[in-house]
Design a protein around this nucleic acid. Structure first.
Lengths: 204, 204
DNA sequence: AAATTGTTTAACTACTTGGTCAAAATTAGA
DNA sequence: TCTAATTTTGACCAAGTAGTTAAACAATTT
């Protein structure tokens, strides 16, 4: 069962590396910690992924593909804009709440190495133009207010991502360190973000 | 001139440390690099700030106080909400564009050490309650739509901060790596963010 | 001007870290 | 079963790291 065992080891490494890297970042992560979390020897890490950088790149690529995902679903669906937006925001917040360190990880590491980011973006199937085109269509049909579609996209992402990236700050400042209260707040935001955006852009 | 020289050295260290820490974070920063950038010996760092952690804490405190600043100005001014918001967003984006690594730095490090963050927040003069009270007053006066004031505050911050934290991503995805085009876009956002929010909350 | 105090440095240390290597253990193929 | 390839490991290494120390230098005090 060479095949299965190999996959197991490699998968264990990838899982462990993802956990550690996302939490501590490239600089804060330790190969020993990743090995420990994977339950293997440190030398085995270097057997599968020759260097820390190569392992990190693999993780970043994998993780980055997660964070700009169902955006494209909005393009290829026939639902009205209100529904599209609602579905996207809801599923996106769900994803982020399951991986609360993910936004900070991506933001930090994309600043550390923008060139690598560029490579990856080419690789993902993200076509901002198609999203913009979809927005423009809504504007020309008079359903939403005319504006730079890039602004609209960034606003949607910022409203969704920021409150999770700034989780610790909000938990302390708004909820006296009550983490459950914070979670409830974010849960409610699935609806309020959409409302906030729609109030701003919908033409009644 | 003991006084002046001491101040100079300490100030040079603080400046250098701020530059390096903001760019590389606690884990990525090197004491040697800070010493080099300050133009002094590494041992002198430890003479003024005994450990890396103490130096980092001093920087984080200093820098964090910058990032939640003129928020309170909104509370103590008599301008109409439209003006308050416009002035805040404009000056805030100015601040962030002058220090584009600042948002990511704060976000990353607040996740690394939330306890220390809590201590600092007590120290700053930020009174979220007063901001919320100001929002509520506008709501009760029927000038803006009723909503959770925490949502409103987070939305303002998210719309302002996120596009700068995600600068590299946007520069690549929206502007084919044209950094000037990105800057122009952000410059324009000073206005469009305010418009976007006001369209959402103002009752006409 | 001598002594005391505060500042700065070069050299050093103890330890951590990513990475290597040769040998052991496991698996696959004949 | 015997052999060859693959996978896993413990021990090791060189480079880099935060932090120390003792001595040189500068400033202040007496």
């Amino acid at each position: 069962m060479n095949e299965i065992k190999k996959d197991n080891a490699e998968e264990k490494i990838l899982n462990a590396a993802q956990n550690v890297f996302i939490k501590k970042g490239m600089d804060g992560a330790r190969m020993q910690e990743i090995a420990d979390e994977a339950g293997i020897n440190k030398a085995l890490l270097h057997y599968y992924f020759r260097t820390k950088e190569k392992l990190f790149d693999a993780i970043f690529k994998k993780v980055f593909s997660k964070i700009l995902p169902n955006l494209m679903d909005m393009v290829y669906s026939d639902l009205p804009i209100e529904k599209k937006l609602g579905i996207f925001v809801e599923s996106y917040i769900d994803l982020l709440m399951k991986n609360p360190f993910l936004p900070t990880f991506i933001l930090k590491e994309m600043n550390r190495n923008p060139d690598f980011l560029a490579k990856i973006i080419k690789g993902t199937g993200i076509q901002p133009d198609k999203i913009f085109a979809m927005f423009k269509k809504e504007m020309e049909a008079g359903r939403i207010r005319k504006m730079d579609p890039r602004d609209l996209l960034v606003n949607i992402l910022g409203l969704s991502i920021f409150p999770i990236a700034a989780g610790p700050l909000m938990t302390i400042m708004f909820f006296e360190n009550d983490k459950e209260a914070y979670k409830t707040f974010i849960e409610r935001r699935k609806k309020t973000i959409t409302e906030f955006i729609l109030h701003s852009i919908l033409i009644k």
